[in-house]
């Protein structure tokens, strides 16, 4: 079965955007590179044909940093199949009082958030990948 596509918002203004980006990279580069990959959100926004082909018919996981839900909106706009949606804000509620860093660099506490969040998402990606194999 083809890989699950993990798409972060990569928001540039605040730490939540960097948390979304680094979480996606942790899943796709370290935890589950055999069954996941990422896609450039910018290409989805422009309606790039290569990006459309890349995500068509494949389960997508979005990771958004704020309530604008840029990843969800952009994947939806290009016709992607979103199977799981995650919000950094929800994850940060589990880590109240922690200083995650800023939009350029994460702190040690920020990386702890990424590691926990990514482990959770990698597990979900594995389930989606198995479901896809089962369903043919």
């Amino acid at each position: 079965m083809s890989k699950v596509v993990v798409i972060p918002c990569s928001g540039i203004g605040k730490v939540m955007g960097l948390l979304s980006r680094e979480t996606a990279l942790e899943v796709t580069n370290r935890l589950a590179p055999e069954i996941t990959e990422t896609a450039c959100l910018g290409q989805l926004v422009t309606g790039d044909e290569d990006a459309r082909v890349k995500i068509t018919g494949r389960p997508c996981i979005t990771i958004d940093g704020c309530t604008a839900n840029c990843a969800i909106e952009s994947v939806t706009a290009i016709g992607g199949n979103i199977q799981a949606k995650y919000q950094v804000l929800d994850e940060m509620r589990k880590h109240r009082g922690k200083n995650a860093g800023d939009g350029s660099m994460l702190t040690v506490e920020g990386w702890q958030i990424v590691d926990e969040f990514a482990a959770h998402i990698a597990k979900r990606a594995e389930e989606l990948h198995k479901e896809g194999r089962t369903n043919g």
């Binding site: 918002c9 990569s10 928001g11 540039i12 203004g13 955007g17 959100l41 910018g42 989805l44 926004v45 604008a68 839900n69 840029c70 990843a71 969800i72 909106e73 952009s74 706009a77 939009g103 350029s104």
Partner: peptide
């Protein structure tokens, strides 16, 4: 881009999250 906005030209430059063209 963040380096320019935050450190090098903080009063001269602004930015936007690219996908906000769709979601905003």
């Amino acid at each position: 881009t963040r380096r320019v906005i935050e450190l090098l030209r903080p009063n001269r430059a602004v930015t936007l999250c690219l996908p906000l063209y769709i979601a905003g």
